[in-house]
């Protein structure tokens, strides 16, 4: 467990801001106590300080996870969000996309979202911006990257990809062993 270096903090926050924008502030300044980001084996965990104290007493070889895992730094020092971060992305998301029930299942198997499966999309989504995917009953399903802006979506034909798949909750079953 160590603090993130300034460089990595910057990379992380840049990434997060793509999805939740200025809501990052809400993650750090919370009314219910102090929360912080910690790094272990290139994984970034978001955790309350109280929990962290207990975690620090466990030898690091045996420490598997603390609080919520947001993602990991790759070897090229880029940050990759994991599906486990969805708990925090979904409520604060700025760009949202709702998929039709027919597309729901496909997305959960790791496919991109096409225009035909698009139910709703929030306005002013820009191209290549992070977007959180919901089912029509407001269940967060995962997140991805917008392949087209909202205005382009209107004109697109039914087979064009609207959103590139990044992570979905189907991974909890598909790849449980390497979630972290």
């Amino acid at each position: 467990m160590k603090r993130l270096s300034e460089e990595r903090t910057k990379i992380l926050f840049e990434k997060l801001s793509q999805y939740i924008g200025s809501n990052i502030k809400l993650l750090i300044e919370r009314p219910d106590g102090l929360y912080c980001f910690r790094e272990q084996r290139d994984r970034v965990y978001y955790v309350a300080e109280k929990v962290l104290k207990v975690a620090e007493s466990i030898p690091s070889d045996h420490l598997i996870s603390v609080g919520t895992c947001f993602g990991k730094f790759t070897k090229t020092n880029k940050f990759r969000l994991h599906i486990t971060a969805l708990n925090y992305l979904a409520p604060y998301a700025q760009n949202k996309l709702w998929v039709k029930p027919s597309m729901e299942q496909q997305f959960l198997y790791g496919h991109n979202i096409t225009k035909s499966g698009l139910g709703r999309i929030s306005e002013s989504v820009e191209k290549f911006h992070g977007i959180v995917v919901f089912s029509m009953s407001d269940l967060p399903l995962g997140f991805g990257v917008a392949a087209r802006s909202t205005t382009d979506c209107r004109l697109a034909d039914s087979l064009t990809v609207i959103c590139f798949h990044q992570a979905d909750i189907g991974e909890y079953i598909r790849s449980e062993s390497d979630l972290l």
Partner: peptide, 22 residues
């Protein structure tokens, strides 16, 4: 087996946990 704990905790939104293999 601890991976199952990790999966379940994150899936179910448990945020106050420390997971260890002592």
């Amino acid at each position: 087996r601890i991976t199952a704990v990790v999966g379940n905790f994150h899936r179910m939104g448990v945020i106050n946990s420390t997971i260890s293999t002592l």
